[in-house]
């Protein structure tokens, strides 16, 4: 590992300093589970890869990783082995269908779902050495606001919040944004509305959330919170098909409505947060 961003051994204490979000790391998170975080991560990664970016998806849902299920991968070496020192990071990075790389957590990561200093340091070291190798690192985090999720999100330069239009999902997304603003002083969160039933409803939802945030959370005019609508993914039977077949939608039916929407998400990201590939 010659291109480690943060030297691990000699500089260990500095890792515990307040964390500065790393460039090009996007956290895909949600308030509630089961809204399609992993689906979005995998397919967005494929869409970005198709546009020429070098993309890695990091399974940061340490306790409950299921990126392997979505991608139908059966990794022999996982992040767990890297954490326990049984394997090198390079050996745990796998090529995924769709032309991107993945780093899977593995089921053994359960024991790391408690955020200890060791886990933090190791996680930091791993992220630090991934960043220089890829144009974009997508972190598929767990849902909600557990320590591990908040920590993973704190490392990202951008937060992509996935929510569905259901009231429970929106309430939890709102509650999570509140915590991110309160604890991490985030000022920008990008919202992806999954399973949208009407064109334009995602923007309406974003405006609605923004109004409530303005009124209850961003009460200091010096620190406004910006909720940006990144895009909608419409309800589409192809999504379910792809999930049931354990195939990557962007690879098999990229032209279905949901596929086009995800391609659009990738283009929007390119316009706003990630530079065009060289």
């Amino acid at each position: 590992m010659n291109d480690v961003l943060i030297p691990a051994a000699e500089n260990k204490n500095s890792l515990r300093l307040p964390l500065k979000p790393l460039g090009k790391v996007l956290a895909v998170t949600s308030g509630k589970g089961g809204v399609g975080k992993t689906f979005v991560s995998a397919n967005l990664a494929a869409a970005l890869a198709r546009r020429g970016h070098r993309v890695l998806v990091l399974d940061a849902d340490l306790g409950l990783a299921n990126l392997d299920v979505v991608l139908n991968l059966h990794p022999k070496i996982t992040l767990h082995d890297v954490f326990t020192g049984k394997a090198r990071l390079e050996d745990a990075i796998l090529p995924a269908p769709g032309g991107f790389s993945v780093l899977l957590a593995g089921s053994g990561m359960v024991e790391y779902s408690r955020l200890t200093t060791e886990v933090r340091d190791e996680f930091l070291r791993i992220i630090g050495s991934l960043v220089p190798r890829y144009d974009v690192v997508l972190m598929d985090t767990g849902a909600g606001i557990s320590d591990v999720v908040l920590f993973a999100v704190s490392l990202a330069s951008e937060v992509l919040m996935v929510a569905t239009p259901e009231p429970t999902s929106l309430t939890d997304a709102y509650a999570t944004i509140k915590v991110l603003v309160g604890q991490q002083l985030r000022q920008t969160v990008r919202l992806i509305v999954n399973q949208s039933t009407r064109p334009g409803s995602g923007q309406a939802i974003t405006n609605q959330l923004q109004q409530v945030l303005d009124r209850f959370v961003a009460t200091d005019p010096g620190h406004p919170i910006q909720l940006l609508h990144l895009g909608d993914i419409p309800v589409d039977p192809e999504v379910r098909q792809a999930i049931m077949r354990r195939q990557l939608m962007m690879q098999h039916t990229p032209d279905c409505p949901a596929g086009k929407a995800i391609a659009q998400l990738a283009r929007t990201l390119e316009k706003t947060v990630i530079p065009k590939p060289a």
Binding site: L170, T171, K178, L209, V212, F216
Partner: peptide, 12 residues
């Protein structure tokens, strides 16, 4: 979590 008041929910 879930420190979302009834008023906030109403608006959401």
């Amino acid at each position: 979590e879930l420190s979302v008041s009834a008023e906030e929910k109403g608006l959401l």
